[in-house]
Design a protein around this nucleic acid. Structure first.
Lengths: 321, 321
DNA sequence: CTGTTAGCGCTTTCAC
DNA sequence: GTGAAAGCGCTAACAG
């Protein structure tokens, strides 16, 4: 098996020096190389199937163009997927390549997997233990901690949006359907904080918080107190909301007459539920834009791509509210 | 800002040579270095916050330990997420680090993004254009094309499992709910092929294929012919199945008395639907194991981790069948 | 305008 | 047992 061609091979093939090859292939500015030479070099490269070595380039330049997203522990749904796609596109505009590392149940520390990759920056969706953050810093890797403490308090806004919508629709009192999955506790706490803040401002009474498991029977028990009286239920996300709906149905409760329900995420199943689920959708593109800004800032650069403005959070009103 | 410490710094700090540092930090075998020296080196490294440079290591060793998963065009749900986590764990056992690149709507070619990363191997979930595959090969990057042509024809087995289950439950004739999203056509084709093959073997008549959009009203139109007669509906996935259910409900059809429905994926919403959706679950762990085997083979290594045996595909019978 | 050259930080023979 | 030194493939000063 013939070893991969190097820039020296290309130089030999084209009858120029390695430097010229580098200049031509990188379109280095302020370098006046005649078009014929350029063509010769490019042809030679193509003929040999030359691909530059990332390792060598990174070593030489002293910086990588890779951004690593560390995915959280919890099951990633379509929202996270979409957000990553958007973020990838935003970063690509700045010449950065985004890759994601799925949560490692083996518990490989963040610094470890960053160490195997050598990214310029690490983006975490939830939050990183302090010692992990320090390890990254020591390795000269920028760190962006997202969402939770992130741009504009997205998670709290989500909670506020649920409450505002519910009250607008005539909810008499407020309840919160807390997720059974302990891995999302951090997010649930923020969203609930948003709910409580909005409830307080509106002068509503306290919020009745109950844990709702993703199982119709268990959910039925949990929602027993919400079957009537126009209680406005804020669910942690659409799945929990679907469970609330299933539970309410067991009791024969009427939605939205007796209880109103609103989820978060706008997963495909929300529109297909019966009755169709109202939900809070996050503008993933805008969120990704903010994250891209944070990455650029951490890297000491400025974004070239546009930063999306507008509301981050939007209520999709359907039949359950 | 002080520049990152190098192995030379550690050597100086510990009063040894760079070679010794390398030996100690890498636990190089067949090297008899006294424990005191080892401790001294490790302490020095810790004190300086030394982290080796991936780029330099990769350059020197001539191979990377990174495996890049190229995610498909379509919205990735929890199944893909779980599979990646499993695959990551399986590869980690072989000292490999998995990262994923989200689909880039900017259409950056696979070879491009691989070129920015320098992975040892690329795994694609769907399939790669031939010229892209060639470009990877030229760069000396191994390629594993997954799922579609992959291990044990998973997609076809999914279709077969749907049919077998439906017939067992007394379906009189078969129908297929085809997805409206063109991006998943490749997968839909395979699954439908499995359905047709199983139907033929069972001597059932032809399969009534209809495209079902993810919208109750549109779905209602599509499923008009399936409202009675114990038609067994194989849906492309759980979301399409949910749409079928929504459509059937518009017609007031009884499930499973008039029509039986089975989805694919076992998303959380499936268990919470009313009636609860029957579905085909793929053993993501086993699938990841197969993929890990393929990666190891492509890299000329042999897996150390165990290869999960057992059925790849399993029917989760709930209320709709 | 193009070529020569000096490293980037690391691993790994080979000599002491 | 430990160290000196060569070089992986590339880029960017600096000569020519």
């Amino acid at each position: 098996m013939p070893r991969r061609p190097t820039s020296a091979d290309v130089a030999r093939e084209a009858g120029v020096s390695r430097a010229t090859v580098s200049y031509v292939l990188n379109d280095t500015p302020h370098q006046s190389i005649p078009e014929v030479t350029r063509t010769r070099v490019r042809d030679a490269a193509a003929r040999l199937g030359y691909a530059p070595s990332v390792a060598a380039r990174v070593l030489r330049r002293g910086r990588s163009d890779v951004v690593l997203a560390l995915l959280p522990d919890w099951p990633i749904g379509p929202s996270v997927g979409t957000m990553l796609t958007e973020l990838s596109a935003a970063l690509a505009a700045d010449g950065l390549t985004l890759v994601a590392h799925p949560y490692d149940r083996a518990g490989r520390p963040a610094a470890d997997i960053a160490g195997a990759l050598g990214p310029a920056c690490v983006v975490v969706l939830d939050a990183l233990a302090e010692e992990q953050a320090d390890a990254l810093e020591a390795a000269g890797i920028a760190l962006v901690q997202g969402l939770l403490s992130g741009p504009g308090d997205v998670e709290r806004r989500v909670g506020r949006a649920q409450v505002e919508h519910l009250l607008e629709r005539g909810a008499a009192r407020l309840a919160y359907a807390w997720p059974a999955d302990v891995r999302v506790t951090g997010f649930a706490r923020e969203r609930l904080a948003g709910v409580r803040a909005a409830a307080e401002e509106a002068g509503t009474g306290g919020v009745d918080v109950r844990e709702v498991a993703l199982d119709p029977a268990a959910a039925a028990t949990a929602v027993a107190a919400w079957t009537s009286g126009r209680v406005g239920v804020c669910a942690y996300n659409d799945e929990v909301a679907l469970a609330v709906l299933a539970g309410l149905r067991v009791h024969g409760a009427r939605v939205p007459a007796g209880a109103l329900v609103v989820g978060v995420d706008d997963v495909p199943a929300a529109a297909l539920a019966v009755p169709a689920l109202s939900t809070v959708a996050v503008d993933l593109g805008a969120l990704a834009g903010h994250l891209a800004d944070a990455v650029a800032a951490a890297l000491g650069a400025t974004r070239t791509g546009p930063t999306a403005a507008g509301e981050l959070v939007r209520v999709v009103a359907r039949a359950t509210s």
